[in-house]
Amino acid sequence: MTATLQSLWEVSLLLCVFALLAIAGLLLARVVGERKANKRESLRRQLLPQLLRGEPVPVERSRVARRMAADLTIELAELVQGNDREGFLAAASLAGADAELVRRLRSNAAQDRLVAAETLAMFPPYASAVSAVALSDRNADVRLGAALALAQEGRAPPVGKLVRSLGIGSKEQSLLVVSLMRDLARTNPHAVEALLYDLEVPDTAKLAATDALAESSSVDHEALVAWMAEASEEDSDLRPRIFRALGQLGHPSGHVAILAGLDSERWQVRSAAAEAVGRSALHSAIPRIVQLLADDQWWVRFRAAEALTRLGAEGRLALQRAAADPNWIVREAASTILAEQAAA
């Protein structure tokens, strides 16, 4: 029993020692950190004006200076545009920022690797180093971040290879993939279009490609719409997104698919198709859209009423007639949306 009692006191003592040491350690780290921060601040004040003016930095090539130059590049490079950026990046290179960022690409911390890759993507000579990160970093967020940064600069690896390495549509479900595809479509629209016809590419990736291509004028939208119309017939969770993309595109060859979507059994699809009617100015759908004002689902009624407000005088007239409909559900939807529009 005495041994147990002694153990209890020893546990307490151990916990106390841990707590005291931890607090002392935290305070010490603070003091050391603050001293370093003061030094860094003075170095920062020295480096910043030269970097912003794109002038060579008159500091010794010390590691601290390289780190500060890298930190300033991370902080400011994206905010500097055009010729000023070129000057800024050249001065940062002379100060050793790029070498420091390359070193950080090998850091154990994913945060450091991501930020280093994003910044290095702005330095043309390092495109291949950042591509390697995009294709093979062990952290999915770092891979995607590097790919996004490269695509924004127009220096991304081949589209197909990137889609497979990132696992877009399989492992990678992020909505940021749409941004990636948009940037990729800016520089290589046909490579993005080719994804639609690649049987191995998952539907989610294809849909992201579709969203991106809808904004591009470099590809034949008719072929794109044909793919979307075909995909819209499949029973998939992606259907609402396909209809939204069809609405955004507004191409006449998508109208048949949109009309079919209005009769879907799934309210999410009816709602997205109703929205697409308004966006693509599909006037022939007005009678069916008016019927949807009596739908069981509020979202469908709301999107239908909203679509009518987008269909010009013809749509407004239909909405005004619906505001006097004997069915109070129709009447409420139409009259309230009309009142909202009047006040806006």
Binding site: E75, A109, L114, V115, E118, G145, L148, A149
Partner: peptide
Amino acid sequence: PPVPRGATLWRRY
């Protein structure tokens, strides 16, 4: 998960 720095966070998200 690593978070993009301030300006990138806004642009990307």
